[in-house]
Simulated assay, not measured.
Amino acid sequence: MSGPAVGLRARAEALTAGLSPLLVAAEHLANSALPGAHGRRRAGAGAEFWQFRPAGASDGLARIDWRRSGRSDEVFVRETEWQAARAVALWVDQGAAMDYSGDRNRPTKSARAQLLAMALALVLLRGGERVGLALPGHPPRAGRAQAERLARGLDTAPAALEHATPDLSAIPTGGHALLFSDFLGDLSAIEASLNLAASRNLRGLLVQVLDPAEEGFPFDGRTRFESMSGHLTFETLRAGDLRAAYRDRLAARKDMLSALARHAGWRFTTLHTDSPAAAGLSWLYHALSLEQRR
């Protein structure tokens, strides 16, 4: 390798050395899953040109682009892109339960949720959106510098409690929120948050992140279950006998979460740590885009 190339590589390595590993991984995911994705592509008040479209009966003469219309037999309207960036707040459950993985080759629920949240934030920031965290001291802001602040806020060690509680009170009215958790704890705090969201016209997504072992319950024989915080333990000699009842209760919980989300005007989905992160990011991006058009 020649001298200039070595110097360039050294400068590049020095530049990225101080970046959060979460931010680096999220950049890679965002670039591979949603290349060129734009945060807001719909008509509205703004200065940036978006598209020409045929004029309709409700379009006034002031909206017609006569230069474009002069090149065809149709009359066209020049549309600009909507510029009023909305606030988007992200929340990832930092409770100890999220640090679970059923296999050393799979990421923990916390790691997958943090990666998805950060990658989505990068895509939104590129589109000019204001993104923050549903945590004290992390208001929605725009710009590249905000990405590094978000990465530091998301990349935290699990708390001592099994599950954390979201706080949506600081999100601007009319904004959007995404809540990432396994939602396997007490749902009263989630219900209260969604009621608050509905009263303040906040739209959003409930994103349940689960390990495959939590879906399939592949346990048999003598098994000792212990919560990630160590506060709860349960031992059985015939774990397989519990499988059907467990799956029924999990299905009922998902139905409850879906109903809570629907009542608040939100959407609910379940993502798994053994599925490609790119597929999850794509779903989140398009679901949030649909919410922002409502």
Rank of each mutant, 00 (worst) to 15 (best):
P4I: 02
R11H: 05
A14Q: 07
T16L: 15
S20K: 09
L22C: 11
A25M: 05
A33W: 14
H38G: 04
R42Y: 10
A43R: 15
W50S: 03
F52T: 02
R53Q: 00
P54A: 11
G56K: 05
D65E: 02
V77H: 01
R78I: 12
T80D: 05
D93F: 09
Q94N: 09
G95A: 04
A96S: 04
P107A: 01
P107R: 01
K109V: 11
A111L: 07
L124V: 10
R130F: 14
P136W: 13
R141Q: 10
R141D: 04
A145L: 14
Q146T: 13
A147K: 07
A147L: 12
L150W: 10
T156Y: 03
P172S: 00
G174F: 00
F183C: 04
F183I: 06
S188Q: 13
A189P: 15
I190D: 14
S193K: 12
L194R: 07
N195E: 10
A198V: 11
R200Q: 10
N201T: 14
F217Y: 07
D220S: 06
E226G: 14
T233R: 04
T236W: 02
L237W: 13
A244I: 03
D248E: 15
D255W: 09
R267V: 03
R267M: 03
R267D: 03
F268Y: 11
F268C: 09
L271V: 15
G280W: 09
G280R: 03
S282G: 02
H286C: 10
L290C: 03
Q292E: 02
Q292L: 06
